[in-house]
């Protein structure tokens, strides 16, 4: 049992060119730690030097931004869908 993680184009080269991964962990912090173990080259793109989320990375669990759900402590359950998206100047402009 695992959650599904969607990888944005910009992060795929550092994550085995995968667009979708199955990931394990009960919190976002655990999921990201395991990802950085599996893909050490992605670490600098996922986490800042202080260990917090990279400032230009948005992480969503079932379409909810984890920064407002406890950050790295945000819970993850089996079958959850985790989406990583770069923070960009977006729409509504």
């Amino acid at each position: 049992m695992a959650a599904v993680l969607r990888v944005p184009t910009v992060l795929r080269p550092a994550m085995g060119n995968n667009s979708v991964l199955e990931v394990e962990g009960s919190t976002i912090g655990e999921v990201l730690t395991r990802l950085t173990e599996a893909y050490p080259g992605a670490r600098a793109q996922l986490l800042g030097e202080d260990g917090a989320l990279h400032r230009f990375l948005n992480v969503y669990v079932n379409d909810d931004d984890v920064r407002y759900l406890g950050g790295l402590d945000a819970p993850v359950s089996d079958h959850d869908e985790i989406t990583l998206l770069p923070a960009v100047a977006g729409g509504f402009l």
Binding site: V10, H54, F56, P86, A87, V88, A89, G90
Partner: peptide, 11 residues
Amino acid sequence: VDGLRSLDDGY
């Protein structure tokens, strides 16, 4: 938007 070279180009 797929034009990012790296996450550091974010905003």
